[in-house]
Amino acid sequence: MRIIGQLTIIATVGFAGTFFAGLLPFPFPGSIMGMLLLFLMMTLRIVKTEHVRESAQFFLTYMAAFFIVPTVTLIEKVGMLDGRSLFHFIWICIASAFLTFLATAASVKLTLRLLHRSSGDKS
């Protein structure tokens, strides 16, 4: 009974996410709207952690299992990748990832320093 109740909440909030995402004037993923709605409802204490705990834990722990099927469809898409594009695809991916890491680190560091300075404590 408890699990079915939890799944009902998750499914209903997810559906509400799809509904509200559809109202926006631009394309917006329903699942992300559902995530934002659930977050909002938890912040407002409409939904409490214990209302969804075990089911959410299950989804979060084993989410990776749901990504296997989209990966396997690669079989049919290998035609899109010749050796040259694959090479570019991979190095751009890695280069961009490292740039993202460094840019994020630098901006967080700078923000923390500015916040410390303006609040006047430490250093």
Binding site: L7, I10, A11, V13, G14, G17, P29, G30, S31, I32, G34, M35, L36, L37, L38, F39, M42, T49, V52, R53, S55, A56, Q57, F59, L60, M63, A65, F66, F67, I68, V69, P70
Partner: peptide
């Protein structure tokens, strides 16, 4: 199983 990505995404809210 692909369909289950949707509720799993919604649940990210719980971890945050």
């Amino acid at each position: 199983l692909v369909m289950l990505i949707f509720p799993a995404t919604t649940c990210i809210a719980v971890s945050v």
